[in-house]
């Protein structure tokens, strides 16, 4: 409870005494590169394999003459859009970006770089943390969209390669009874998860005390807390928007 209060004060601090708008734009662009561009590789790998595995396993579970083949790709599509891309990639994202944010801020804290900013009269919270959060909520939804495509594409490649279902059926299933709201839902999730990962990790890193050991601990705490928050939010959003 106490740390929730501290977290809210921290969040409030983000929006006071800002530097010039131009400074923020360049900071946000830097962070976008760190947060988004540098995650492309891992997100690509995870997405393609996830798509492949889900296709194979769904096919394995649906061996029945009464179920048409295209149902496999339909299931792949819905799982990808609703859960796999926003949520599983969020866990990966927390591992990569969350630990990075916490490590960076923690190191800046223990080496007095944050104090150095404060002495110059800069609001270190908004200067360091706000760009990270903005970059995260800008980039993560894009990563999710990309992941969704790659995941479904991974499934497509597997289908053709192994002949589980024909390419034609796969495409047919992908387009069958498509619900547009699912995409909106995925993007809402992406936005919320991005916000959670960036702010929790920043909070953990920013309030590091001690030495190198504690920076490591903050990074770990950032990842575990982000993951828990993601899963909780995942459930709440599903209940609220789909339930």
């Amino acid at each position: 409870m106490k740390s929730l209060g501290k977290f809210l004060i921290f969040a409030g601090q983000l929006f006071v005494r800002r530097e010039s708008f131009k400074t923020y734009v360049s900071l946000v662009i830097d962070e976008c590169i760190k947060v988004g561009y540098n995650s492309l590789f891992i997100v690509t790998i995870v997405s393609v394999f996830m798509g492949a595995v889900v296709t194979v396993q769904t096919a394995y579970n649906l061996v029945s003459p009464f179920i048409p083949d295209y149902v496999i790709s339909l299931v792949v599509r819905d799982m990808t859009v609703l859960e796999l891309s926003p949520t599983i990639i969020a866990i990966v994202y927390a591992g990569k970006v969350g630990s990075n944010i916490a490590g960076e801020l923690g190191t800046m804290r223990i080496t007095e770089q944050i104090d150095a900013l404060e002495v110059m009269g800069i609001n270190s919270t908004s200067y360091l943390v706000l760009p990270k959060i903005i970059a995260s909520v800008l980039m993560y939804p894009m990563l999710v969209v990309m992941s969704g495509f790659l995941c479904i594409y991974g499934g497509y490649l597997t289908s053709i390669a192994t002949g589980i279902i024909s390419g034609h059926d796969y495409i047919y299933g992908i387009r069958y009874e498509f619900i547009e709201f699912n995409i909106t839902f995925a993007l809402i999730k992406a936005f919320v998860f991005a916000l959670l990962v960036a702010s929790i990790s920043a909070y953990k890193g920013y309030f590091t005390t001690g030495g190198a050991l504690e920076v490591g601990k903050s990074s770990t705490a950032a990842v575990t807390n982000s993951c828990i928050a993601i899963l909780l939010a995942d459930y709440l959003l599903a209940q609220l928007l789909l339930g």
Partner: peptide, 12 residues
């Protein structure tokens, strides 16, 4: 104010 920190605190 100018300040020199114990560990220099350069932005790495």
């Amino acid at each position: 104010i100018g300040m020199l920190f114990q560990g220099s605190a350069l932005f790495d």
